[in-house]
Design a binder for these strands. Sequence first.
DNA 1: ATTTATCATTCCGAAAAGTGGAATCGTTGC
DNA 2: GCAACGATTCCACTTTTCGGAATGATAAAT
Lengths: 307, 307
Amino acid sequence: MRGYDLDLLRFLQVLIEEESVSLAARRLKVSEPAMSRHLAKLRVAFADPILVQSGRRMSASAFAVGILDRVQELVRAADSLIETRALANLANMAPTFTIRANDLVVASLALPLLQALKKECPRCELIWAPEIDDPASDPLRHGRVDLYIGATDVMKPEIRRQTLFRDHMQGVVRKDHPILATPITPQSMVLYDYISVSRRGRAQGPIDWVLRNQYGLTRRIAMVVPNYHCMVESMKNSDLILPLPGIVVDHISVAALGLATFEFPLSLPSIDAFQAWHPRRDTDPVHRWLRETLFRVSRQILGPCTQ
Amino acid sequence: MRGYDLDLLRFLQVLIEEESVSLAARRLKVSEPAMSRHLAKLRVAFADPILVQSGRRMSASAFAVGILDRVQELVRAADSLIETRALANLANMAPTFTIRANDLVVASLALPLLQALKKECPRCELIWAPEIDDPASDPLRHGRVDLYIGATDVMKPEIRRQTLFRDHMQGVVRKDHPILATPITPQSMVLYDYISVSRRGRAQGPIDWVLRNQYGLTRRIAMVVPNYHCMVESMKNSDLILPLPGIVVDHISVAALGLATFEFPLSLPSIDAFQAWHPRRDTDPVHRWLRETLFRVSRQILGPCTQ
DNA sequence: ATTTATCATTCCGAAAAGTGGAATCGTTGC
DNA sequence: GCAACGATTCCACTTTTCGGAATGATAAAT
């Protein structure tokens, strides 16, 4: 006798995580009757109900909750055996990844990421796809893009995502801007006009919402630009204020451009940059290696997320 | 896509351990074609041959050898999930185990073992079956005995066994025996007659073989007895030498019986006491709990094996 | 060099297992 | 009391797995 079918562990993990036969079925792409039968087999094998009726819903039994960690680790470890084999051959592979990210990310991460990847896989290639105005999920779904790096996009529900780093906006002005002469307050913020960076022409953002809701103030957007490049070259001749994320500020030579920066005296929500991918790549060990390498590199370059 | 069938891990483990499709098939009680197909699926899943032809035989690939530890641990951990559930209910169980062991073992281990078992399972019961002269394997095969503890028995090949403790023989004589007047040598050993303890009337043993082969000496067996009990009561009135294992010597009150002990000046093979059970109990979590408890108790009482 | 033995793989028909849709059951909200 | 929702059971069909027979590969024996 060989004991129970170990493949039931895959079902067990998802059943406990979802606490629902229907959701578990959907997640593993089988019918509800099929999932129900798997649950029945698990109940026999473990002599435990696993999921118990809790009013209209189901909830996991104490025993099931107690072993979830071990089940998750088991399934993960079992799948990583496959990766052991696949990754053993990285040095002989020549994978090409298409990654879509905005210019800020490319500027700061592209080179260190490529260096880290090539360390283990010398013939690895990256293609940085240009930003588009369509929803970011579609190319992931169709497989035209392997990985997407964004911060504000709303992704389709099935798209997987992982936070890479946390950022916040800083104000950029010319070096001797009058706003710097005294401690900056919300009131002094709105004395000057602003530049807004938005590919879709969106002028309003978190700064506006906080000013209005917490101080009853309104800032003026003098113009909206699709990217910051030409602004940082010429804004030193004006009193305009340009909000930029830290990732950019760290990247440009502020002093050389005749500029200075300041922290907004506001409680702004942070910006969580993430990487996103389609679930079909979940079990692709080479794709996982890419994600893990990008995650590690982004933390090295940009510092850990404080969350 | 759910990834490969995790149940293949059971086959993977046995295939790597046996390095033979036939032996693996036999061990898991499937046909050779069935095992061959499982191997084929493993080869696809891992993109590795797993077993490669090495002349007439097969041997495990480097990759397979490299992951065997992890595979064994995975299968063990997966099966132990079942035990987690089963053992969670020990306090409410009332299992009865039939254990066959010789009197020496019963005398020294029965009470501590029962105490240790009852600590976790208050209604647990032990039945110590009397020694018999038939092969010890048969009752295990037929299920009449759950566990057998022995030392010298040859068991059937499918019987599982685990060493419990290591022992050695000591000489027992009356308190003022002349052999104790000077350092004991092989030559002085054979000046006196011996008692041999053997249920099957076997007079010769390792002592005889070592004396003959290393010193060209022969000891005289004055009599053979089926157990040592009556001898230790009456032998103080004679110059007979009674060899007994340490487990007995530690158990009886040597001084109160007017006796003394000595170490044989010979390089004798040690006695490995073991527990034995039928493989059908391998996956029985309650039976495994019994074995593990017996193992732990025997080490506590008799000291660890130096091996 | 040929034959024999052993072990692994492939083929094939039969048996077993698994599937999803439909029907049914149990619980809660309205 | 009825409707909605989710889980389970039933049923016919599909897929997978099984073991015996046949085949292939290798080394030992003759």
